[in-house]
Design a protein around this nucleic acid. Structure first.
Lengths: 230, 230
DNA sequence: ATTATTATTTAGTCTTACCTAAATCAACAA
DNA sequence: TTGTTGATTTAGGTAAGACTAAATAATAAT
């Protein structure tokens, strides 16, 4: 079964939205894919009537993936994240450069290519942003961490994942040293969703950086050694 | 200017046909691209009326590239051959596997990717089949060799290039040891386009292989140290 | 020079995936 | 219950890039 790039992107988007926000609505998909809502309606109708059925869709009710659809979504995500890792490790791309390149390559590489870069990389479990790389049979490495915006004053943790692909944001975070494996300590928490102040690194006297909600919502941390949340 | 994959393939095909056979006709293009002749007519009309003009076309007269079109064709060919070399050298692909993968990747990689793999490879001049890789400014490394089918009995030479991407043929040639840099000696020449017998390697007593015209037309050799032809 | 053959173009369709504008549905407040 | 609003779908259309069938031009053979 050979799927168009457009369809692969819809499946991937549905997967991500369902997992990151609980459900995938027409508007959310339109936003994510940068197409008109009407186009999403049309595509969902098509996807849900085609066989094999890749999505479960009822008008006005949002959409979810069937097992067949999820399998494909995970294959595309595996491609994407393996490629990101390869670009980073083998070709020296910085973590803010990898997403755009992977976005195009993910649709065209062969199984052969996938296998060879996975091999070269030693079958990594996470990509340069800490996103888990699905295995060939569609299993996701478990990652136990919680969102930075839920941490309270005094807590310390290790950065595990930055779930955002905006190059400017990634460069900003890298500048502050907020990258996977870095140690963070919350030195101050303003109330009412105000900025969170974090120290980067293990030294106690380090300068703190004030981070707003849009940033702290994207950073995931493994607190101490005791972790909750997905 | 962002071009579709289809257009890039037309430009590449026109380039190759003009250089390998002197001219690019509608039927030859249709054959090469595996589309109907009518589709080629339509595309050529479009390409020659669009601006910037990428091809020079007059109905019933064949087509050629304008300087602008040739520039793009050479960029795509550079992508293709660099990728082939990268797959071979960095990922261990065999020479019969690289073409198909490169055919898809060539259209989606960025300038960044191109530069990085060229760098990793040490700016190679030839791909795994001996095809010259255009430089960034569109220059082709000069390759002095002549077609195996023009060699006469007793002549010895070094394989420089195999201009064919059929995996089965490439595997067959590799099996015989006919790969770039191998030494060949013509031990027998049947008349009237009959098979050519070649010994592979430097040892005088080696067994000879009989090769038909379809094969010998694709293999290019640098005879002794004195070479002619392009 | 006329006919036969082959190459090429024209005309008219199809599919995919997008769009805008208009209609409809769902959810919630008055 | 009845609006009102926002989300969603329907209707109708466009652009690429392919196709088939029919018409025409070029080439070769008689």
């Amino acid at each position: 079964m050979v799927l168009s790039e457009a369809i692969e992107n819809y499946l991937k988007a549905i997967y991500q939205l369902c997992h990151e926000r609980g459900r995938a609505t027409t508007t959310a998909l339109a936003d994510w894919l940068e197409v008109a809502p009407a186009s999403v309606s049309g595509m969902l109708k098509k996807l849900s009537s085609d066989r094999p059925k890749l999505v479960q869709y009822t008008r006005h009710r949002g959409v979810s993936l069937t097992p067949a659809g999820e399998k494909i979504a995970l294959e595309v995500i595996r491609h994407h994240r393996l490629i990101e890792m390869y670009l980073h490790q083998a070709l020296g791309y910085s973590w803010d450069q990898v997403h755009d390149e992977a976005e195009k390559l993910e649709h065209v590489i062969s199984e052969e290519f996938e296998d060879r870069i996975a091999e070269k990389l030693g079958h990594p479990e996470f990509d340069p942003h800490g996103d888990p790389i699905p295995t060939k049979n569609g299993e996701l490495p478990k990652l136990s961490c919680s969102c930075l915006s839920t941490m309270s004053k005094g807590q310390t943790g290790r950065v595990r994942r930055v779930r955002n692909s905006d190059p400017a944001l990634l460069r900003y975070l890298a500048e502050l040293g907020i990258v996977p494996d870095a140690t963070l300590t919350v030195s101050e928490r303003a109330p009412f969703g105000g900025p969170l102040h974090v120290q980067v690194g293990a030294e106690p006297g380090a300068a703190a950086h004030a981070l707003g909600r849009p940033v702290t919502d994207q950073v995931f941390v493994e607190v101490d050694g005791t972790a909750v949340d997905e």
